[in-house]
């Protein structure tokens, strides 16, 4: 179909349209006007700079005033920025206006040539490459070629080895948290121990393990230790006997670190008993040991077994029995 049309006469190229003169080309008054317009744009730019400097020096940064849509706005920031914007924008507008109105606007045609060199040049070039390859003996001396490859490949190993000290090996670090048998649950923030009766039905509390005297808490500890306490009616649980024994009087504790990608999961919906991760919307059912009911997470949140100590404070019954947080290759399943 298209074949035959290619044989048929196409519409002819009428060539570049005739150049139409601008008003500024023919009318000196228009050109003068354009010149003045460009000058005004440049002057506006200079005024913008003055505004910016004035704002920098004289407008205090605690002055606010109301602008519709924007609300209460900081005058220092606004006028400094606007001044800068004006000073830059109007230089640009002036330059473009100048180019458009006063510089020649006749279109110019430049020739383009195919990039491929003439055949004889190419043949010479190919010949040279062949000669060079032969001179180096790349074709014949394969031992050199292979050992060079080996050496180059090996030399890339040094930089890799040098990066080894970037950090320690993970070891068992990802499996461990600060929770131990008998560690008290304390509020985050506040570090106050909690009694079961402190929590009403439907209450939550963000908790961390109590600090041992003399130690400090780092962010990397919180990244594994953060726990969410939730109190339900004991009858609402649908847990097996073991998991039920990990709760205390309707209080259940989960790792707050998402089993998907490690965000803090703490959106607890009191009515549905669902926990939602705000990062990727994995949804966990608290009554069924944080079973995943929606979203990308593949595992329930690890549950912390809790009980009370002699003083009646909530403590960990045992450490977590699985690693908290996102999965990794050697994570025991």
């Amino acid at each position: 179909m298209s074949d035959e049309f290619n044989q048929i006469a196409k519409f002819e190229d009428p060539g570049l349209p005739e150049h139409v003169h601008r008003k500024t080309d023919t009318d000196p008054k228009a050109a003068d006007l354009a010149e003045r317009q460009v000058a005004i744009l440049f002057i506006l730019s200079a005024l913008g700079t003055v505004l910016a400097i004035y704002a920098y020096i004289f407008i205090k940064d605690d002055v606010f005033f109301f602008i519709p849509i924007m609300g209460d706005t900081n005058a220092h920031q606004l006028f400094l920025g606007l001044g800068m914007a004006i000073s830059l924008l109007f230089i640009g507008l002036g330059l473009v206006h100048w180019a458009k109105m006063l510089m020649p606007d006749t279109e110019v045609i430049a020739k383009r040539h195919e990039f491929r060199s003439p055949d004889e040049d190419r043949a010479d070039f190919h010949q040279t490459i062949k000669e060079q390859a032969a001179a180096a003996g790349l074709g014949r001396r394969s031992l050199i070629k292979r050992t060079l490859g080996l050496a180059l490949g090996f030399s890339a190993l040094t930089p890799l080895v040098l990066l080894r000290d970037l950090g320690p090996l993970p070891g068992k670090d990802l499996e461990k948290t600060s929770w131990k048998r008998g560690t008290r649950l304390v509020t985050d923030p506040g570090d106050r121990p909690i009694r079961p009766e402190d929590l009403e039905i439907g209450a939550v509390a963000q908790v961390l393990p109590e600090l041992e005297p003399g130690s400090t808490r780092h962010l990397s500890d919180i990244a594994k230790d953060a726990v969410l306490l939730i109190r339900l009616r004991p009858s609402e649980f649908q847990l097996d006997a073991e998991r039920l024994s990990w709760t205390y009087d309707g209080i259940i504790a989960f790792s707050k670190i998402c089993s998907h990608m490690g965000c803090a999961v703490a959106l607890y919906e009191q009515q549905t008993k669902h926990l939602l991760c705000p990062c990727h919307q994995s949804t966990f059912d608290v009554t069924r040991a944080a079973k995943v009911i929606f979203g990308p997470s593949a595992r329930p949140l690890p549950q912390l077994s809790i009980t009370v100590d002699a003083d009646g404070y909530l403590v960990a019954q045992n450490p977590f029995n699985e690693p908290v947080g996102p999965s990794y290759w050697e994570r025991p399943s």
Partner: peptide, 18 residues
Amino acid sequence: TGPQSMPVFSDKTITPEE
């Protein structure tokens, strides 16, 4: 009180001052 979906924040875990 923890209305609707919102959980309760007890006075012992978040004190009245807090």
